[in-house]
């Protein structure tokens, strides 16, 4: 299977090329186009409980499995917001993905909703983060974002604005804290809360904050 990511960063789309019999697991609604020999099957992977957890985490209850029948085929997938896509090989130590960034993965990747507790709640990104685990090496996940995606190396410690987080190596520890020393300064600085990462590992960030963008454009729209 080959992931060919095109049109980066704003209209990014992954062209997934499958050999006969290969399968792709994708978020509901992610398919843009496909060759007619692709078979699509809809299921709540991991059962109803897992489906519900996914739903609360901003993902969909059902997911689609695409299978190439009678020879090679292709599926085009993307997320719904403008922005970048990267493919990440899921490390043995697992990968954390911010809710709603999951697009598709190899079948050997298990992605489950993880209750982030107050930490993620205060980070302002909803109650859930997703945790992807791989059954072995070479298993990849396609991750989408609002903005361009930059991979950063956390070498000891790194501060990230909470609205710009996309994914991180599960081996990193993080705490949510004020951006400046005092509450007033934090508020005035416009940065609010930030995530302080510690340890060695990778962090992927998005160059725009979807909530700030939504607020700015939303207030210019006609009232609902």
């Amino acid at each position: 299977m080959n992931f060919n990511v095109m049109y980066r960063p704003s209209g990014a789309m992954a062209q997934v090329q499958l050999e006969g019999g290969e399968q792709l697991l994708a978020e509901a609604g992610a398919m843009i186009g496909m060759s007619p020999n692709m078979n699509m099957e809809t299921q709540a992977k991991g059962g109803v409980g897992a489906g519900l957890k996914r739903m609360f985490s901003g993902e969909s209850f059902f997911q689609n499995t695409f299978t190439a029948m009678n020879g090679p085929g292709e599926v085009l997938v993307a997320h719904s917001l403008p922005g970048d896509i990267v493919s990440i090989e899921v490390p043995q130590s697992a990968l954390m993905i911010q809710s709603s960034s999951f697009i598709a993965s190899h079948m050997g990747v298990t992605t489950s909703a993880k209750v982030g507790g107050f930490k993620t709640f205060f980070a302002g990104e909803g109650l859930f983060a997703l945790r992807s685990e791989a059954s072995g090496p070479g298993q990849q996940v396609l991750v989408g974002a609002f903005g361009g995606i930059t991979e950063m190396q956390c070498d000891g410690n790194l501060v990230i604005d909470t609205g710009h987080l996309v994914a991180w190596d599960a081996g990193l520890t993080y705490k949510t804290q004020k951006s400046a020393s005092g509450w007033l300064a934090s508020f005035l600085s416009g940065e609010g809360l930030v995530c302080q990462f510690e340890g060695q590992g990778r962090v992927w960030i998005q160059s725009r904050n979807p909530r700030e963008y939504g607020t700015l454009i939303g207030r210019q729209l006609p009232p609902a």
């Binding site: 719904s80 917001l81 939504g214 729209l221 009232p223 609902a224």
Partner: peptide, 21 residues
């Protein structure tokens, strides 16, 4: 010719940010 995003996607994202009457 296919578009890699749809208008419906951005519209439903922006919907909750609209002012209310």
């Amino acid at each position: 010719w296919l578009a890699t995003r749809s208008a419906g996607g951005i519209a439903s994202f922006l919907q909750p940010f609209r002012p209310t009457k």
